[in-house]
Nucleic acid binder design. Structure first.
Lengths: 187, 187
DNA sequence: CCCTTTCTTTGACATAAGTCAAATATTTTC
DNA sequence: GAAAATATTTGACTTATGTCAAAGAAAGGG
């Protein structure tokens, strides 16, 4: 069982009152394709739990968009550093399709975490999971060339290749659009 | 103030009994240059808090060592995924000089974390800090070429350039030894 | 359903970085 | 302090990937 499943199970087993408190502190909202859930320069004061649809996180560098994470159903979207430090961040979060998400304000979750130690433990696990995910991404940049990174993505996250435009995938893989197109033509 | 200072301050302000409990659960040990504090394939069951000296974390890929982190005085050395999941990891931790470290067993810290909620909160902060650090490293691979990554290192971590052999620095920067040597000759 | 916009492919060429090999330079060890 | 081991530099060449440009394909809006 992977860590994400462990976390999911942990959440499922939380007492009813904790679930109630979480639901009470969050609101569900609908976004349209193209909507920005967070903009560069803003403090990320809310986390988005996707109920449906697709979103991405990206930043601008030299006028080019670099996508750093892509979210599907059940994923938790936020700009990590900005959220944790409550300082202005450099990332956008954009709806890549119409989507529904439950929005949890940072302060509300902080308060709940204080009240329910189980949520503090959950917070540890979520940060750990994110750090492990980042380690693996970094690992790929160290050890794989562009073709192998694309193949790894095909294996591990076929839903990315299925639903996401190449322009976005290329930046996510750290290569140019043209190189990605050529890789696909070759394999 | 950066997050590391915030964490350090948090630690300093922990109640005396917590400090006592932490000290009681850990032991101080001396390592010689070249000693391996952790080997590939082992479960990382202890964290190392460096009191003096230098260490690094690395893994082998295709017979080549790739250094992923370099530790100085006060840094906390561990193989994150292996430590968190308590599964065999792929990283080594090696003393790059003689060093002293206090060793905290995973299970002991778990027990203390349960007893003192303040340590659970500390654990969140440490994972957050590591994730933010990883995000920044990944960011550099996305946005900077080899020369700029080296310059960024010169700015941000001059102690690395001062004390660490180029072979290790090159792998840490994700480039070949020869390329790093040429970059240094040029700037 | 057509027009516009966005996305993808392909070609020609430029550039960053890797590899292999050998020469120096520096450090460590006996 | 000499020999051995390790670290660094340099040269010649190869390769992966980027850039610019243009054409073709697909998707979305009125």
């Amino acid at each position: 069982m992977n860590y994400l499943d462990t976390i999911q199970q942990y959440i499922n087993n939380l007492p009813h009152e904790v679930h109630q408190a979480l639901n009470g502190a969050s609101v569900i909202r609908h976004y349209k394709k193209g909507d920005l859930l967070l903009k560069q320069g803003e403090v990320c004061q809310r986390s988005f739990h996707l109920h449906s649809g697709i979103a991405r996180k990206y930043y601008l560098n030299d006028g080019k968009e670099i996508t750093t994470e892509i979210y599907f159903k059940n994923d938790l979207a936020l700009s990590f550093e900005s959220y944790v430090l409550q300082t202005p961040g450099h990332e956008y979060i954009e709806a890549l399709s119409d989507l529904d998400a439950s929005i949890m304000p940072f302060q509300a979750f902080r308060a709940l975490r204080k009240k329910f130690p189980a949520l503090m433990e959950l917070d540890v696990m979520l940060s750990e999971y994110y750090a492990i995910w980042l380690e693996q991404r970094l690992f790929q940049f160290y050890t794989l060339d562009a073709t192998l990174r694309y193949k790894a993505m095909l294996e591990k996250s076929p839903q990315l290749v299925q639903f996401i435009p190449l322009t976005i995938l290329a930046s996510y893989l750290g290569i140019s659009l043209e190189t990605l197109s050529r890789i696909r033509a070759k394999i």
